[in-house]
Design a protein around this nucleic acid. Structure first.
Lengths: 138, 138
DNA sequence: TATACTATTGAAAATGATTTTCAATAAAGG
DNA sequence: CCTTTATTGAAAATCATTTTCAATAGTATA
């Protein structure tokens, strides 16, 4: 998966490729940090000066719809986004520098079926996020 | 733990017990659903007509600070709160009716230490939320 | 119980993030 | 190259949340 692939996927789904979208896509794709719309705007504008904040919102919306990015939930707020990575993965956030790492947590299947049994709920989806310090910050 | 205990805990921490806080506390304490500030306002005002929305925000802030309630993160938004229940527990939300169930997930300790080893992160906290349908909705 | 101190209150105004509106522009297919 | 129509940025509108402020009401103390 590359940034160009993201643009291609947008186009395949009937959206057009524009300079503004290119700037946003390249900004979010390349980031190891979860970025807020305002941060994306600030960074992406270095690539494409005429960019408007509104377009950032609109592009993030489409990328989320395509599951190319995902929202990151944090104690400080839930407006930040990060590239989705491959397949189903969970997030690990550094509380100091904000760096995001992915990990696979298929081990959860056992847990979710146990919980389903115990509670009578039919479980569709799960969110797992870990918080801590990355190797450079600790 | 009862609603009166919550009020007592607020008082023990230097806050005063007022009719407005009483209405908010009884509303949130008794709910099986995660409630937004606006929803708390609407319900609590049936108990105390003069209540202001601002006071709801301020009271929720204090209850969260005392770890009596916790914020619930959902795809639709992250402004809803629910009683914390006892000890460290995880959330299970019904996508249909919004009912929240708690469950214990101490089994995660094994997972977090494994992830810590693999990634080099020092893990402090984790959030786990499951989504699905409760027994009555499925 | 009365008093004094000060936290708390609700209303209104202010803020900040996000969304909508709209006319001008530019992408993509023919 | 044209035509169609999605996309754009700016400005205005909206919505949730926070701040300000003078009036009120808890609580400790006498």
């Amino acid at each position: 998966m590359s940034a160009e692939n993201w643009l291609q996927q947008l186009q395949d789904n009937g959206y057009r490729i524009t300079a503004a979208r290119r700037a946003v896509v390249f900004t979010v794709f390349g980031s190891v940090h979860a970025l807020t719309p305002a941060q994306v705007y600030e960074i992406a504008r270095k690539k494409y000066r005429a960019l408007g904040l509104v377009t950032v919102y609109r592009t993030l919306e489409k990328l989320e719809e395509q599951h190319l990015i995902q929202r990151v939930h944090q104690p400080a707020g839930c407006q930040a986004f990060i590239s989705s990575g491959m397949g189903h993965q969970h997030l690990l956030l550094c509380e100091q520098c904000g760096k995001v790492a992915f990990f696979e947590g298929d081990d959860l299947d056992a847990l979710t079926t146990a919980i389903a049994q115990k509670t009578g709920y039919q479980i569709h989806e799960h969110w797992l996020q870990l918080f801590g310090l990355c190797s450079s910050c600790k």
